[in-house]
Design a protein around this nucleic acid. Structure first.
Length: 471
RNA sequence: GUCCCCAUCGUCUAGCGGUCCAGGACUCCGCCCUUUCACGGCGGCAACGGGGGUUCGAACCCCCCUGGGGACGCCA
């Protein structure tokens, strides 16, 4: 049987970072076994499912590059199939109509809670026909009353639950629509899912699902319940911890493979290796060695991982991802040096694509103002003389290359008998408007002669005005 | 409350009975490199939750406690 995994989110919000990790594990497992990966949208909750959420999921998956071989399937399009299964269960005596009202159930629950018992349906309608035409009945699955359910979880190990802990769960609502525990079972079965990889908040559902499966005469898949991701305070990761939607990470300038790399290491490791390409992960990832313990999300390490990827990825790849952030900021990548070269220059000092986009600005457009502190510190003393000297030589330079430019800077500092910093810093501020940039020769080389000369002119004018303002 | 899951530095983790007075990574702090900012290099701080067993020997196995998380919906 070909390995088949799936990711089955419900479209009731954004694509959660925790969901992404289980999707990644599922995707990796399928890919490394030459299997299939399915995307299924669990939208049976008509009240809460929205098309916007569906789009967010699809867009998130596309951005991450987690491609699926089948789907997206929508459960709302499979209602006929679920209805058939429910009828079958009813017919064979494994399910029954329940006429208990919500109020009755609520009362039962509070009584049980008062008695410090686990709230569960008491099976009132299980054996007696209490048909009541005034209300539309739900359908309940007839869970075995005795025995235990055991399964060997691929990450948690063997888990056993007594059937006495399980009640008769609702598989069809009063309006006839199916509920989650029925639809997952039917879908995973129909779609030939061999490995169900999901959050461990589903552990408690698993025995019920296995019981339904066996009532249907189907063999259960392998289950792998991966632990939840926690926030810094140890509570389940949620909105109040900051960004939890994948798309927010895209907005913040993360590379998709970096996010994935960070997420895979949350609960899994391969020796001391921290940085993985996607291909390496497909090769090295092992479901069986995923930790059973939950782990906390650490944004600082994510930033570090992102930086590592920015530094090591192919420059054209980074450039391609950088473009949207440039456009967002009104920076035209055609109005200056080749983007790849800029990436090469900036990648060691850009932890995110946002930082890189901001840092590349002066290559493509004129900056508004000089950084006040930088100007004050560096546009004084012999700065004007330095800049004028440099400008003269730059104008005459035949070979506009980093080495030659470097030599000009050195020569100038020697002729004027100034320390290198006294030459390079004023020039840096003149060219970039700020006190920090990549090495001055590389910056000059990429900026080109025209922009260099015009910016030195501008700086000279600015310095003159500063002088006037003072006197 | 009941049931289920979990437990090594602040965080992510290595460790799978002796080679561990516990290794790596992030963060933080020093130093070095350096024309700025970075990258990088070197060094430092920092952990086996507690108690019982088992064993010649336990971070590793078992039990209890404690702590954390999850489930208990006509949500998924």
């Amino acid at each position: 049987m070909t390995v088949t995994t799936r990711f089955a989110p419900s479209p009731t919000g954004y694509l959660h970072i925790g969901g992404v990790r289980t999707a990644l594990y599922s995707w990796l497992y399928a890919r490394q076994h030459g299997g299939r990966f399915i995307l299924r949208i669990e939208d049976t909750d008509l009240e809460r499912s929205t098309p916007e959420s569906v789009n967010a999921i699809l867009e998130g998956m596309a951005w991450l590059g987690l491609d699926y071989d089948q789907g997206p399937f929508y459960q709302t399009q499979r209602f006929d199939r679920y209805r058939d299964v429910i009828q079958q269960l009813l017919a064979q005596g494994d399910a029954y109509y329940c006429y208990c009202s919500k109020e009755e159930l609520e009362q039962l629950r509070s009584e049980q809670l008062a008695r410090k018992e686990k709230p569960r349906y008491d099976g009132k309608c299980r054996d007696q026909e209490t048909a009541n035409d005034d209300r539309s009945p739900v359908v309940r699955f007839k869970n075995p009353k005795t025995g235990v359910v055991t399964f060997n979880d691929a990450v948690k190990g063997p888990i056993t639950v007594s059937n006495q802990e399980l009640d008769d769960l609702i598989i069809a609502r009063g309006d006839g629509t199916p509920t989650y525990n029925l639809t997952v079972v039917v879908d995973d079965w129909d779609m030939g899912v061999t490995h169900v990889i999901r959050g461990d908040d589903h552990i408690n559902n698993t025995p019920r699902q296995i019981n339904i499966l066996s009532a249907l005469g189907a063999k259960p898949p392998v289950y792998a319940h991966v632990p939840m991701i926690l926030g810094a305070d140890g509570a389940r990761l949620s909105k109040r911890h900051g960004a939890v939607s994948v798309l927010q990470y895209r907005e913040q300038g993360f590379l998709p493979e970096a996010l994935l790399n960070y997420l895979v290491r949350l609960g899994w490791s391969h020796g001391d290796q921290e940085i993985f390409t996607l291909d390496e992960l497909v090769e090295k990832f092992r479901l069986e060695t995923v930790n059973a313990a939950p782990s906390a999300f650490n944004p600082e390490k994510l930033v570090w991982v992102n930086h590592q990827h920015i530094m090591t990825a192919a420059p054209e790849h980074v450039a391609r991802h950088l473009r949207p952030y440039l456009e967002q900021r009104g920076i035209d990548p055609e109005a200056g040096p080749d983007l790849k070269a800029v990436v090469l220059l900036l990648r060691e000092r850009s932890k995110t694509l946002i930082e890189m986009a901001e840092g590349s600005r002066y290559f493509y457009q004129e900056f508004e103002d000089y950084d006040a502190k930088a100007a004050q510190k560096n546009f004084k003393g012999e700065a004007a003389q330095v800049l004028a000297t440099l400008a003269k030589q730059f104008a005459e330079l035949t070979d506009w290359q980093a080495d030659a430019l470097h030599q000009v800077v050195i020569d100038t500092s020697e002729t004027l008998e100034l320390k290198l910093g006294k030459v390079a810093q004023p020039l840096r501020v003149a060219l970039t408007g700020t006190g920090q940039s990549p090495s001055i020769d590389a910056t000059l080389a990429l900026l080109g002669r025209d922009k260099t000369l015009s910016r030195i002119d501008r700086a000279l004018a600015f310095i003159q005005q500063m002088g006037k303002a003072k006197s």
